[in-house]
Design a protein around this nucleic acid. Sequence first.
DNA 1: CCTACCGATCGGTAGG
DNA 2: CCTACCGATCGGTAGG
Lengths: 196, 196
Amino acid sequence: MSVAAPLRSRKAQIDGTATALFRAQGFAATSMRELALAVGLEAGSLYSHVRSKEEILHRVCFGLAEDFFAAFAAATTDDGQPVAQRLRQAIEAHVRVLTQDVAASTVFLHEWRHLSEPARTEFVTLRDRYEAGFRALVQQGTAAGELHCPDPAFAALTLLASLNWLPTWYRPDGKLTPDEVAHRLAEQLLGGLLFQ
Amino acid sequence: MSVAAPLRSRKAQIDGTATALFRAQGFAATSMRELALAVGLEAGSLYSHVRSKEEILHRVCFGLAEDFFAAFAAATTDDGQPVAQRLRQAIEAHVRVLTQDVAASTVFLHEWRHLSEPARTEFVTLRDRYEAGFRALVQQGTAAGELHCPDPAFAALTLLASLNWLPTWYRPDGKLTPDEVAHRLAEQLLGGLLFQ
DNA sequence: CCTACCGATCGGTAGG
DNA sequence: CCTACCGATCGGTAGG
């Protein structure tokens, strides 16, 4: 007795479609009826798979936060590499997560304010912690004499900021692969930080 | 007979308050009743000063577009300066417009998609033209051997992108003045483009 | 997963 | 500038 079958994939389909709609129109301007139509269900049926509209947003935002943390950790595990090299890898990792799912990234970057408390505060805390990781790298690099900048905290902030506009212009079907984009961005941004 | 008095300033007050609300919550999530309350009127009274919710958005978006164009033009009028210097001035001018009204800038950067046609297309056209101005500078600078980058169009795009995240982190009451922020950003970004 | 529906709220208008 | 109100639409639920 009872269901069982396509529950998992239905939910994933709903999340994915919702992400695309949230990206294109914003969370507030996207209605559950619109989502239902796009996914081929009646409005009320959505609630068999999803508790609320905000629950979808919550999953997207915190899911991507996990991706960013995992990518950063993998990119910066110390192999005795110079700090500048680890920073370069962190930049490229960040870009790769952004390019992997542009829609989800846009939602992550812009729509999180529609989370209600306490989720909203939790999210901001995560973001701050992530930024602190970059800040630490820039500070270490500066202390080690590998980077030169008047204010490491400012440099780290604007460095990350430089990357986060990417979902606005990046096209997955463009002529540059994600890795090429990541490499060029790192090159362009680090060129201003590295000695020489 | 008839009114006359505070019409102008009321409208400006409504625009300003709406801009702050649009920034904080997004256009779609901001109701006219909320705006009315914030401005000390009843909901219906708003429509004595304003034709529609979208009209406010239209004014903010296109008003700021004018500011950007004017600032760019003033910053790049040729005094026989090197291209790199004109690019630096364009960057600083862009940052100064952004810092001058962070709320309006945020709306300009993010909420324009809630414009309906044909305004939306007009807006995108303006943005493209503005970006083309930066692209031309980077291309000229590269051709003149003042800048070095593998792909001027890519560099111009990401350069501007780097600046546009500013409203997300910039605090008018921070320790850096707008001019200092503008200068540091230009320094950090151009450092990676300039020879040496 | 659908039908039918709830109360709330939306942008905007009429008439003064 | 207010009161009173319009039709539409919203997120979500009940009951099957």
